[in-house]
């Protein structure tokens, strides 16, 4: 049994996590937003008169909202006693830093009604791996969550994610640039970014207090003053906001002419990088990130056109 399996067994043995109460009781405003987003026009969720005449004899919540009620919110963090969070940390530390959800099977025992206050527990069911996948080598992590009103079980979910080590992208195989290059100065405030590029991730600083996304990063959030910067991993997709075709003078490590693009990422921040492989550059050109390994210490992000 390796370290990951040992940790998985330890976390699984702890069984169900303590019950965590939803931030708010089941409520009509949240239901309205959800059904509008989903496009569900069934009046039993939002129209008291229609609901009263229905089989439910009053307003009910869409069953598929079960998980919604106990979500952490935009800036919430998993508690230390959450088995999924604990298992993620184990896998992150082992280098399986990326995640994708693969299965979610939910069972609804009854409809919820406004003002009912649900609580949730989670236990780690299974950790399987390492598996080779198209995304890279990884571990499948399965958890079971149970929602209660009082002691009554109202819904259950089996949830499976793949935690994987990102496969080396083709761009990383490029030969090491032969001429001297300009290297970034890296300090405590910025090292997460360069650790990210080494791991094939484009990271955007995200305030641990208010969630503000910020690039370039800094140690203190200008919105809320928090000094607990975290990050999210960008999808690496965006559009050219502006660009320069550099001709003169020569720049160490580059062959002129070359293009530097200021890209507005889909997450909303802007970032500079060299743009290669574009037959024609224009403002608005859709691009995606590529990573080029310079040496063991430095991997540079740059852009290429995206289909």
């Amino acid at each position: 049994m390796n370290e990951i399996e040992k940790e998985a067994a330890r976390i699984a043995e702890q069984g169900e996590s303590p019950r965590r109460l939803a931030r708010d009781p089941v409520n009509l405003p949240m239901i309205r937003n959800w059904v509008e987003a989903i496009g569900d026009t069934n009046p039993v969720y939002t129209d008291p008169e229609a609901a009263a005449k229905s089989v439910h004899e009053g307003l009910v919540a869409p069953p598929a909202m079960a998980q919604v009620w106990t979500m952490y919110g935009l800036n919430g963090q998993r508690g230390g006693d959450d088995p999924l969070g604990a298992m993620m940390t184990v896998l992150d530390d082992a280098g399986f830093t990326s995640v994708v959800a693969t299965n979610s099977d939910q069972t609804y025992h009854r409809y919820l009604r406004p003002d009912e206050h649900v609580a949730v527990t989670t236990r780690l069911e299974d950790v399987t791996g390492p598996k080779r996948t198209a995304l890279g080598e990884g571990w499948f992590v399965t958890t079971t969550s149970t929602w209660y009103v009082g002691d009554e079980v109202v819904a259950e979910m089996r949830f499976r994610v793949l935690k994987f080590r990102p496969a080396a992208k083709p761009a990383e195989a490029k030969p090491v640039v032969s001429t001297p290059v300009i290297k970034p100065a890296i300090n405590r405030d910025t090292e997460y970014f360069w650790e990210g590029t080494r791991a094939g991730e484009l990271r955007i600083q995200r305030c641990g207090g208010c969630g503000l996304l910020r690039h370039p990063p800094g140690p203190m959030c200008p919105e809320c003053g928090a000094t607990k910067p975290k990050y999210l991993v960008s999808e690496g997709r965006g559009e050219v906001y502006s660009y320069v075709v550099h001709h003169h003078p020569r720049v160490p490590g580059k062959e002129v002419p070359f293009v530097v693009a200021l890209v507005e990422l889909e997450e909303g921040v802007r970032m500079l990088g060299e743009l290669t492989g574009a037959a024609e550059v224009r403002v608005g050109l859709p691009v995606e990130v590529v990573f080029t390994k310079v040496d063991d210490e430095l991997t540079m992000p740059s852009w290429r056109p995206r289909a």
Binding site: I182, K183, P184, V244, H246, V251, V260, M271, G273, M300
Partner: peptide, 9 residues
């Protein structure tokens, strides 16, 4: 470091 290494120098 957000511009020079990217070639904007």
């Amino acid at each position: 470091s957000w511009s020079y290494p990217m070639g904007l120098g």
